[in-house]
Design a protein around this nucleic acid. Structure first.
Lengths: 231, 231
DNA sequence: TTATTTTTATGATTAAAATCATAAAAATGT
DNA sequence: ACATTTTTATGATTTTAATCATAAAAATAA
């Protein structure tokens, strides 16, 4: 990984949540890397060495199944931590992969320093714990959806999640561009099925698309599709 | 809830992870309740008032879908915490339900005291964070399984998980008795499908059953069914 | 700027699992 | 001990979504 662009030490979850006196230590220990589109940052099964933050760009966190299937667990955008599942007791290898969706800059903190950070910053550890609790809630909802919600609902849910995380840009579309395959992997379905479902949503004027750009026209319709009363 | 059996203040995650000096405060603030089989401890959507631990018995944590479907997220057995997802930022209502699988005793800690406990016990908060990280890893694996693994693999995975959590009793079977419906809800499939899959597993002498008792005969076969090379 | 790879597009077919229907057995409450 | 509810059992049918097949368009690399 090329090493040049430096982060501003004021963007990521770590810099924002640790006590100010600790920042010089962070600066001394952090390593910034430039990543290019499609670059694999770490891969499922790699031995754990540290934890990452996004400074610029977007990263997908995914878990593979067989040679050509995967589920995208979440996206990490500006400021977000990733690779943190390795904090658990028996975590010696990354249980997931992380891949850059576009060119950007990431920040790497080795485990040793990260653990010192937690010891010195109980408030940070507390915030991390709260963050995990939120992620767990989200994960549980997603599990339930994968088990019981039809694909159309899951695609609707995926779009709403993307809107929440990335927002709507001035042109009115969700501010991230994913391939249909990535959208499918995020919704937990195949490319073909998601392709068809997206077409349906367009037909019903629930959304409009322009290449990879997606615009939510009828939010309440999407929302309705995620209800357990829909089906 | 009836209130009689008292816990020994030495079993649950809280009592074991907080500093000893804090125990009297715990004892003063805890509330023990006896629950009977099938009793709903709290229900999805109820306003949050506190956090729970299991002293005796087993509890299922589940999330509903429609009027008659659910996904069992996990089981809480002796010592385990449950209801803890409410720690997240915007958590004012329980995102899941908890139901006793058998008669037992639970311990209730109100949120205010639980938050004080975390403030006073950074080590406890740290352990909680690690526990969450582990749960997240497990949740991600389960999501991936629900998205891509066939039902047979998911049932195999469920049985292995149950074995890990509850162990094998002297008679040689997994030390928890679930209805087929609960096993199905845990695997994220319907009763009928799981019923058939269990029959297949019996035919192939991978497992044997005796009513609700399940005995794993060929662990490696079950394990193989959970591999992404199986399908 | 041409070649190669990736992404989108779409129909046809198959497979997996859910749904529907019904009955017997077991467990539980009174 | 009997009535009621829950759980197990199993076949038939339907639905959903995955798989297979193929081609065009778009993006990227040489």
């Amino acid at each position: 990984m090329k090493k040049n662009t430096q982060c501003d030490n004021n963007t990521c979850f770590l810099c924002k949540s640790c006590i100010k006196e600790w920042l010089p230590a962070v600066v001394a220990n952090k390593k910034n890397y430039n990543v290019k589109k499609g670059q694999v940052i770490f891969s499922e099964g790699d031995p754990v060495t540290g934890i990452y933050f996004v400074y610029e760009g977007n990263v997908k966190v995914h878990k593979k199944w067989g040679p050509d299937k995967e589920l995208i667990i979440r996206f990490a955008n500006k400021g977000a931590i990733f690779g943190h599942r390795v904090l658990g007791k028996h975590a010696t290898h990354y249980p997931i992969s992380a891949t850059a969706l576009e060119a950007g800059t990431i920040c790497y903190i080795d485990m040793e320093f990260f653990e010192a950070t937690m010891k010195v910053n109980p408030q940070f550890t507390y915030e991390l714990m709260l963050f995990f609790a939120d992620e767990l809630q989200e994960a549980e909802k997603k599990m339930r959806n994968l088990a019981h919600m039809p694909v159309k609902g899951r695609v609707a849910y995926a779009l709403l999640t993307l809107k929440d995380q990335f927002g709507i840009n001035p042109e009115g579309h969700i501010d991230i561009e994913l391939t249909r395959q990535d959208l499918a992997s995020f919704a937990g379905a195949t490319y073909e099925t998601v392709f068809r479902v997206v077409n349906e949503l367009i037909q019903e004027t629930t959304i409009t698309t322009n290449g990879k750009k997606i615009c939510i026209v009828d939010n309440s319709k999407l929302l309705a599709l995620t209800e357990d009363t829909a089906a």
